[in-house]
Amino acid sequence: MRSNLKNLAIAALCSTSIANVYAQESINFVSWGGSTQDAQTEAWALPFTGKTGIKVIQDGPTDYGKLKAMVESGNVQWDIVDVEADFAYRAAAEGLLEPLDFSVIDKSNIDPRFVSDYGIGSFYFSFILAYNKNKISSEEPQDWNALFDTKTYPGKRALYKWPSPGVLELALLADGVSATNLYPLDLDRAFKKLDTIKKDIVWWGGGAQSQQLIASGEVSMGQFWNGRIFSLQADGLPIGNSWKQNLVMSDFLVVPKGAKNKEAAMKFLAYSSSPQGQADFATITAYSPINTKSEALLDKGLSAYLPTNYTADQVSLNYQYWAKNGPQIAQRWNNWLLQ
């Protein structure tokens, strides 16, 4: 009894002194800005600070060039960065990242698609086919084929403009390649397929622009992030979508090599990837949790809007393939775009 009390007292003492140390600690969290980052602040940063006392300073937007420059100069100001999954693999290969400490982060419940030695999923989302109902006169489009069928579905197409996973895959799927045989990508075939609608493509570079294009009817359909479509639908706009062959992509959280607050960053990652953290983020954004335990914590009405609900139709994009071949594909991509 007495020793228990003593232990308790020591524990209490320790925890207060730790709390004091924490109070001065802070980490810099970098993401893409806008509503995604607001959601990350609300779902992760605020409760994390409440729990640990570690202050989370928000910065953005993510800039890969800056990240690399910081690591090379040895003056790293960022502790946690939200990056695209393929970049997480590429940066790890280039030696730009700290390995994660899985004694702090529990990865036993993380979907293995969304965790590597150097990064852990931030959230996952799908590229889905969406359309403006006012612009569709025939029956509603079912899959990526509709994008290439300009006769039945006239109007412009919105596609993601960066050379990253998604566009080439959907072109191949529409051309009849089966989901299991996608990789290695048949670039000639993909570009040939895209050539058929090249003049009808409007490229979008960010979420805001994509929403603007479809909401205004500037494009009749296209490839979109599911969360952006969700927020349009929640606003009551006449936007429809199909989950068939939804392409799974994700953002990873990584710690740049030489980050100044590495330990605190690991603790943050433990929280952000926890069932609760992931569930809270999903509730705000309609992006899917990467933690398999999170689903039980979600509101039932929401699941119709989450990629998690359409796993049977999912096609997983291969980040490792892109991490390795991305630069060459990008060169080809640029050439094709500028032709």
């Binding site: 800039d63 890969y64 060039g65 990008a330 775009l337």
Partner: peptide, 22 residues
């Protein structure tokens, strides 16, 4: 602009941001 009208300054930024090719 659209993608096919990329100009030199954007090209430079792309080299740094997307390809990490300083």
């Amino acid at each position: 602009g659209g993608v096919s009208d990329m100009m030199l300054p954007e090209f430079i930024v792309q080299q740094i941001q997307n390809f990490l090719n300083w």
